[in-house]
Design a protein around this nucleic acid. Structure first.
Lengths: 123, 123
DNA sequence: CGGAATCCAATTTGATACTG
DNA sequence: CAGTATCAAATTGGATTCCG
């Protein structure tokens, strides 16, 4: 048996490739990705499944996703105004690893909840 | 062409299977998973690659991962004390979807950074 | 309709000192 | 060594009001 290697101090420096993609960890991004999966959506439309998101937070989240190239924003010069958000090719590509994570969650959800309950007993 | 379906209001209710696994979104959990990949590690050992994590936050994170069944904690009755953290089978299973996400990030990192720079110009 | 502005609450993260 | 306790800072999320 080989001895286990010590952990290096710069294991997570800069471009290590171990960090999670930048914005999927926040509260709404992953859900927005799902909302846009089937096609472009309007601002108000997105608020429906995201019940209680405030316009401020929804705007911030969409801007950040736009900034990372996952989402495009198209404003039409109409009255009343109309704006559509859509996934870019990059955003669409992100759906694939996300699907893996979601599948994992579905597969192990009961197990995790079980462990939690056990853990709660021991306190 | 079929028209796009409206988004349902309960799309993200309860057990929808679209939510991310509970703890991977925080600052340290994903990195800890990596740190434990090669085998059990001690508390102080984990602080090396995680430079600036405070003991408080490291403890909190490890406890949460323990609570979700990803990590086991074993305390040996020695002096000086020794405690080892290791991945459970469940924690190890999580590495798989995480690898997908990391691979995606590595593959698209340059692209994202490029888009960001463009976006920064437009401001 | 699609936000922006302002203010505030909650949550997370961290610095520091101390202990069995 | 492996934490706990306390306090402070930062980040995030949210409520509300207003506007073109």
């Amino acid at each position: 048996m080989s001895r286990i290697e010590p952990l290096s101090a710069d294991m997570f420096d800069a471009d290590c490739g171990h960090r999670m993609p930048f914005r999927v960890g926040d509260k709404w991004s992953a859900m927005l990705l799902r909302c846009l999966e089937a096609g472009p959506r309007r601002f108000t439309e997105l608020k429906v499944p995201l019940h209680r998101v405030s316009p401020k937070v929804l705007t911030e989240t969409l801007r950040a996703m736009e900034r990372d190239g996952w989402v495009s924003r198209t404003a039409y010069d109409e009255n009343p105004p109309r704006v559509e958000y859509a996934l870019t090719a990059l955003g669409r590509a992100l759906l694939d690893p996300m699907d893996h994570l979601c599948a994992w969650t579905r597969a192990h959800r009961a197990e995790i909840l079980g462990v939690r309950e056990e853990y709660a007993q021991g306190e």
